[in-house]
Design a protein around this nucleic acid. Structure first.
Lengths: 334, 334
DNA sequence: GCTATTTGTCGAAGCGCTTCGACGAACACG
DNA sequence: CGTGTTCGTCGAAGCGCTTCGACAAATAGC
């Protein structure tokens, strides 16, 4: 492996000149640059990441903490991950993958060892123990999600309250007045992931504002969970004409259950789902949905981290506005 | 951030002694060890990863290259990823995540910069351009998959040929003689991922050996793909009594299509699927399946990498034996 | 009891890079 | 034409760690 001094010798310049050609931190004449670059290419030189990190205290690596086997849908997680990795690469950074189950120790390990320049943390909970730990690190961090108290840490997420409101407005616009929310599984609420409660709050508020009759219920896993949820809703508010489904896992069994009980979508029952685009279009009925913009959120998280690294001030919290895409699961009721 | 010399001073020893306490490469008396460890704990010392990498040429990081938005099922990819990350941690390594779309350049970048000790590459194709590139690196690598010519690189995968044979034996054991294979989408074959062809070969060979009547067809995406695939099979080999499904994406639309056309599973048609356990159990009918042991494969890949790093010789290719788990989608035919 | 060996520790030399200060050369200004 | 600047380059001092050789002390071997 050639080193910077091999390059310097080959190009007939000093090491520092090579370094400045690479970093652009000082002006170097065009001819010298050309010679250095030629030498680099010819020798197949790559700067040693460790040496660079040691000398510059910059690693060009971002940590990304992902949840493992939780009730967040796996494809959505993967979308975040690919968005973050792709965005990081556009800033010449790589991504070190940590799992949530390492908890606080994992964060302290990679930060303490100066393995990363910044951290991006997914699936933060209402009162996440990792937040104070992140605050203690010398590296900046960005949360994907919105805890009760972010303690000054930057957050990025979809605006779930606004999303709920949009779903209701969409249905109300189609003439629906009696609407039920099929929420995430009770486990999600218990775990304290705030997107569930933010959505619920948005739902309740918008319902009042629009003067609708609504109920909301969590929905447990599997066909059994769906059946139970539907039954309870039916008891509390009979004859709903539309469903807002904020639970990806429930989508397949829900449609199956409705079909089995003879309720057609959208003729008998309209549905607006909150899920990524590809899930919405891959089901038997193409669902009108509020897309979860995993890609945008991931990209924005990386951008925020980069701003922080460059010492730029950034807004504490960025909530992305929802977009509803009309497909085939909503009918008008007049 | 305290450095090793802060620790040394606090413990009243030399830097090298601290280093040897940490690495265990030289004998250090119990008392000294205790003092050093106390100092480390008190100061909250973490060795600087870059400095360590520079001095020792070891990074404690593994690269993992994952496919992005391909026709491999996302949950399966995620299982590999979590298995690799978890296994890596048991060896005190972290994982740097690369995406396949960076191609050869990504491998050369992280290896050339000495960011990683070894590379694990998923989704290798029949004649993958990355294989020669991997051979040129100074770091060892492990492939998940089995190319035509691994060029001396270690490979780990499920034994798909044996899996196909097991599926057929299972069905034959239940008295089925006319069996169809619903294969991956044509795109998978074209891309040259060998698991598809290995499975197909195993299927054909076992079929001949067992004296069965079989057909095999790829199956395109969505309900349309499934319908077309079923129709063609029906034309070529009418009245099959069982299906081997080697296509996760097709599972949901396939079951839906069978239900719609009034064919009950398993009364009218038996099914053995090749998919991860959780997919098999989450469908309307719990499927008898050959589990894809993503966890085992990922773990084994990391173990292999570690052996390689320690200079231990390892077998060139490790193919894991399949396991068929009986559930509710196979009936006996006498 | 005297030479080998082992045990426990230290000092110093790098690992490959960035960055600061220095300095001559070229250029600008009045 | 002197005096400031800017430009382009160099040398050297680290960044924090590992590891090699050295060496005193303790232990073993005969």
């Amino acid at each position: 492996m050639p080193t910077i001094s091999d390059v310097a010798r080959a190009a007939g310049v000093s090491m520092s000149t090579v370094s400045y050609v690479l970093s652009g931190r000082r002006p170097i004449s065009a001819e010298t640059q050309a010679r250095v670059k030629a030498a680099i290419a010819e020798l197949g030189y790559h700067p040693h990441a460790g040496a660079r990190a040691l000398a510059s205290s910059r690693t060009s690596v971002l940590a990304l903490v992902v949840p493992l086997r939780v009730d967040v849908s796996v494809p959505v997680i993967m979308q975040f991950v690919t968005a973050v990795v792709t965005a990081a690469r556009t800033y010449n950074h790589d991504v070190l993958l940590l799992t949530k189950d390492e908890g606080t120790a994992g964060l302290e390990r990679v930060a303490g060892a100066t393995m990363v320049d910044a951290l991006i943390v997914m699936d933060v909970e209402r009162d996440d123990v990792r937040i104070p730990a992140l605050g203690r690190l010398k590296q900046p961090s960005v949360l994907i999600g919105l805890p009760d108290d972010a303690a000054g840490i930057a957050c990025v997420d979809l605006d779930f309250a606004a999303t709920a409101a949009e779903c209701l407005k969409h249905l109300a616009g189609h003439g629906h007045r009696r609407i039920a929310l099929v929420g995430p599984s009770p486990a999600v609420y218990e775990r304290g992931t705030t997107y569930a409660s933010r959505f619920l709050t948005g739902f309740t508020d918008a319902s009042a504002e629009l003067g609708l009759d609504t109920v909301a219920h969590p929905c447990g896993p599997g066909a059994a969970g769906v059946r139970e949820c539907l039954a309870e809703m039916d008891a509390e508010l009979p004859e709903v004409s539309a469903l807002v489904v904020h639970n990806e896992e429930a989508l397949v069994p829900l449609l199956e259950e409705l079909r089995a009980s003879g309720r057609r979508v959208p003729e008998d029952l309209s549905i607006v789902a909150v899920c990524p685009r590809d899930v919405a279009v891959s089901l038997p009925v193409r669902l009108t949905s509020a897309d979860i913009p995993a890609h945008d959120v991931g990209t924005l998280a990386v951008e925020t981290a980069m701003n922080l690294l460059d010492g730029r001030r950034t807004p504490g919290t960025r909530l992305l506005a929802p977009t509803i895409v009309e497909r085939d699961s909503c009918s008008s009721r007049d």
